[in-house]
Amino acid sequence: MSGHSTQENRHIIPARTYIAVGVGLLLLTAVTVGVSFIHLEGWNAIAAVGIASVKALLVALIFMHLLYDKKIFLVIFSTAILFLGIFLALTMFDILSRGEIYPEYEKTIEKNAVMYKKAEPAPAAEPVEDSTSDVQ
């Protein structure tokens, strides 16, 4: 090993590449803001997350050198994304499939949190008729 090569794997990326990526990121920002004003039904969310993923990938691969560095860093990064995905997917699977067998599982009883109740006038107290034990 040569004595003075202290910073290993020194891949110097041309400034042009960095600037091109930077401009690309700004353009994609413009695109994502533009798309958000077009009504695309359910596709808006997919477009927004899709564009964000492309941007994040550019940052990771170029700015963070994942494209040029040792593969171990890419493996670590991918692992993080994979487990985030597992967490999200399995949790959302539960949330979205709760009503499959019993529709009652999907809904909450009170739609609004207790803090919104204070604003409304309290309902008049009405004791419910107990029809069983009342012997007239």
Partner: peptide, 22 residues
């Protein structure tokens, strides 16, 4: 070990299908 956590929740009100997968 990261794929099985829902087996703590079979009677918790989790969706039955999720329980089956877990």
């Amino acid at each position: 070990s990261f794929l099985v956590w829902g087996h703590h929740m079979f009677v918790s009100g989790q969706s039955q299908l999720a329980s089956a997968i877990f």
